[in-house]
Simulated assay, not measured.
Amino acid sequence: MIERHLSNKRSARAEALRRAFYRFRQSRLSLIGAAMVATVVFFTLFGAVLAPFPEHVDGGVDTSNRFSAPSLAHPFGTNELGQDVLSLVMAGTPVSVSAGFAVVFIGSVLGVIVGALAGFNGGWIDDVLMRFSDLMLTLPSLILAMAVAAALGPGFGNMIIAIALAWWPGYARLVRGEVLQAREEVYVAAARAIGASPFRVLFRHILPNIVSPVIVKMSLDMGFAILTVAALGFIGIGVRPPTPEWGTQLSIARSYMPDFWWTAVFPGLAMFMAVFGFNLLGDGLRDVLDPRARR
């Protein structure tokens, strides 16, 4: 009997995954987004290794080859130091994307914990945590991140901490609402009836059943996190040269526009591809994972 139950459960899960994949494949934009994200992930893992001019990534210069237009030797041209722009863009992908992922991961973990505790416990705990979240939401996230980053100083780690501290309230509000709804479900009452502890009810029964909207929000937030990382680099309080990063490259290239347009266009296109791809993928995941948003 138990083996039959487990077999039926696995079959139902496999059928649900098959249906979800079918719905995802029905959207061309979602497939395009998945392909773009796969490309971005590939260059995140191997961009610095595959850069055609690794010495330029490490800070080497070639002043005799300054501002060369795009050509076979340099498909994206060269910058004011004679460095290959393609190599800098490829090497900047791991920095920008990994920073965005770290921001979303840290912000989501903090937000899930705060929102889960507030929604599950209610009372004064809910009031204190949510009023603090509301206070954080009243502050523009970019301005708050700029203030924290300026206080901590420039650097990759400080930049991630600064943005993540401004990122978690959205997840807290989302998870609180989902927990408030889920704690009234029958399976939660059944778990309490058999003597499950509050910790087990929350982390074993409630949170696994509300993970779908969190995953959707994380995928949609990746693009905005990458933009925020680039914004801090653009104004000079994020990653600093010679570490390649898209926002820093755009900040330097703006001084040479429009004469040497390629120094800004190609880092901007890389950023556009990453942000647009994650947004399309997030829309596809929302249609698959969130029953209320399915078309």
Rank of each mutant, 00 (worst) to 15 (best):
R19V: 00
L174H: 09
P94K: 13
A48N: 13
F224W: 13
L117N: 07
A51F: 03
G247C: 02
A172N: 04
V103D: 09
V179C: 10
A118R: 08
S68E: 14
M273K: 04
Q26S: 08
L269W: 04
T63M: 14
P70G: 08
A164G: 07
Y22G: 00
P70H: 09
I226R: 10
A225E: 01
A118Y: 08
G277S: 02
V201A: 10
P70A: 13
S87V: 03
A166F: 07
I125K: 14
F278D: 01
G77E: 00
R4G: 06
G223D: 01
G107P: 03
S68D: 11
A230R: 09
A162C: 08
G107K: 12
E3K: 14
V229L: 11
S30L: 05
S11R: 14
F42T: 10
F203S: 15
I125T: 14
G111I: 08
V214R: 13
A16C: 05
M90W: 12
G284I: 01
T263Q: 09
D127T: 08
V128L: 15
N158T: 02
L72C: 10
I215C: 05
L202T: 01
A34I: 02
R292C: 05
E55H: 12
G282C: 09
S30A: 15
Q83T: 00
G170H: 06
W246T: 07
V40R: 08
Q26E: 09
W124S: 00
A264H: 02
D126T: 01
G111N: 14
A150Y: 10
V114A: 15
H74D: 05
L285R: 03
A48K: 14
S197R: 14
I235K: 09
P208C: 11
A164Q: 07
K9D: 13
V179E: 12
W246S: 10
D58S: 15
R176A: 03
L202I: 05
P169T: 06
W261R: 02
A196E: 13
L144M: 14
P291Y: 07
Q181T: 10
H56K: 08
L129M: 15
T93M: 15
V37P: 07
G60L: 04
N8W: 09
G277C: 03
P154N: 03
D127C: 01
F43T: 02
I235P: 04
S64T: 09
A48R: 15
E55F: 05
H5R: 12
T263R: 11
R66V: 07
R4P: 02
L81V: 00
A149N: 06
V175N: 11
Y256E: 01
A51I: 03
M218I: 01
G223Y: 03
G233P: 06
S255D: 10
E55V: 02
G153E: 03
L281Y: 01
P213D: 07
L50V: 13
S255Y: 01
F101I: 11
A20P: 00
